[in-house]
């Protein structure tokens, strides 16, 4: 197995995630796209851990999973709150910061 096949898979997932973040306006779907990005990073970390024969990558992958869980929890809490106040979760309607 080549190092690059895993890294390429990770970059493809990353770019798809970036596309999702840009293209979607439903807040829940944006959160899902962010999960794609986080997972691609995890694949990278574990690939390098295997390549370098260290376990540091595993530790960080686990930390990323935990942070992602926290992020989803808070993110969905925010989405719920927005929905309750605005009756929509389309981020394009949340333009109070318009300059």
């Amino acid at each position: 197995m080549y190092v690059n096949q895993f890294l390429f898979l990770a970059s493809v997932l990353f770019c798809i995630g970036v596309y999702g973040v840009i293209a979607r306006k439903n807040a829940v779907l944006i959160l899902m796209s962010i999960e794609l990005i986080l997972n691609s990073v995890n694949i990278n970390l574990l690939t390098f851990a295997l390549r370098n024969g260290s376990t540091d990558g595993h530790t960080f992958a686990l930390y990323i999973i935990a942070v992602a869980a926290a992020e989803v929890g808070v993110g969905l809490g925010l989405v719920l709150l927005v929905y309750r106040n605005k009756k929509t979760i389309s981020v394009d309607d949340l333009s109070e910061m318009r300059g």
Partner: peptide, 18 residues
Amino acid sequence: TQSGKVSQYGALLFSAAA
């Protein structure tokens, strides 16, 4: 460019980064 839309800022950010 001054719409206040979050996803648009994200798009600009990502394009600049890319």
